[in-house]
Design a protein around this nucleic acid. Structure first.
Length: 271
DNA sequence: AAGGTTACCTGCCCGC
DNA sequence: TGCGGGCAGGTAACCT
């Protein structure tokens, strides 16, 4: 899926296209996403007040006190299109607005999922209640990392991808931030000094901010809400570069599989 | 109980 | 050109 910068980009792109609109109809492809779809009738005729993000979830807040929670999975995309425009392949949900536009949800692999929850009960929702701190807030700092990682035997890469430690860091930005911080992804979490954690904390924030500025990464099927790709993928320093020269020291970038996910790193620049 | 593995699903790319 | 295998940005349900 899109990682945090991509979701942030989608929220930014969607907001001006949907805020103030009312859903007047809905349909789905008949195929479930990861879970059964919610009853969209709960949202009918109520204006969308705002679209926000928590971790990698999009939150559509409705005037009637309901919030539509949406996760894009690996391949989810939103598009706002004229209602009379033909359905695209893998379009699984259509929410029709009162103004002849409609919000289309496309998801090739159908790993995405949606739910509806009373806005005042959002923090207790099962998908949101266990989430850790947002990476771009002051709550995410070296001391926080130290506290969360003490006694943890898992690798540092797995730790920063754990949503209870910090949300929004996925497989790409895990490798990228560890490279920038000079830490091998296999390092045992509990062995890192506060000094190293400071560097890592700083680099996680930095790489996410840069990616958001670039409008999210583009890998295969990520498209922003306006249909145009983002440009951060041009800035990957290690992700997907196995066998190629490290941009700092020229040593070939290594690729290993950790917990079933690809990790990329430089053995000279990271220790 | 933490840490690992697997499943969910489709498409693409690679090698034979 | 066709086919099988491996791989893909996430999450969570399982196992050990």
């Amino acid at each position: 899926m899109p990682e945090l910068p991509e979701v942030e980009t989608v929220v930014t792109g969607l907001k001006p296209q949907v805020v103030g609109k009312k859903i007047v109809g809905f349909k789905d492809s008949g195929k479930n996403l990861r879970y059964a779809l919610p009853d969209f009738a709960l949202l009918l005729q109520s204006p969308i007040l705002d679209v926000t993000r928590r971790a990698k979830y999009l939150l559509f807040h409705f005037e009637n006190g309901q919030t539509l929670i949406w996760h894009l999975g690996m391949t989810g995309q939103f598009h706002v299109l004229p209602t009379n425009q033909a359905e695209a392949k893998h379009e699984h949900v259509t929410l029709t607005f009162q103004d002849d536009t409609s919000l289309r949800y496309r998801d090739t692999r159908r790993f995405g999922y949606a739910g509806i929850c009373a806005t005042d009960g959002l923090s207790k929702h099962i998908w949101l209640s266990k989430l850790g701190v947002e990476p771009l807030t002051a709550d995410f700092n070296a001391k926080h990392l130290q506290l969360m990682l003490k006694n943890k035997k898992i690798s540092i890469k797995q730790a920063i991808m754990d949503n209870a430690v910090v949300v929004g860091v996925g497989n790409i930005y895990a490798s990228e931030s560890l490279f920038r911080a000079g830490i091998l992804p296999t390092t045992a979490s509990q062995t890192l000094s506060l000094q190293k954690l400071k560097k890592l904390n700083h680099n996680i924030k930095d790489v996410l901010i840069q990616a958001i500025k670039a409008g999210g990464s583009t890998i295969s099927d990520f498209v922003k809400a306006d249909g145009k790709p983002g440009y951060f993928s041009h800035s990957f320093q290690v992700y997907g570069r196995d066998g190629k020269a490290c941009l700092v020291c020229k040593k070939p970038i290594q690729r290993i599989v950790q917990n079933g996910r690809a990790s990329f790193f430089c053995t000279k620049c990271q220790s």
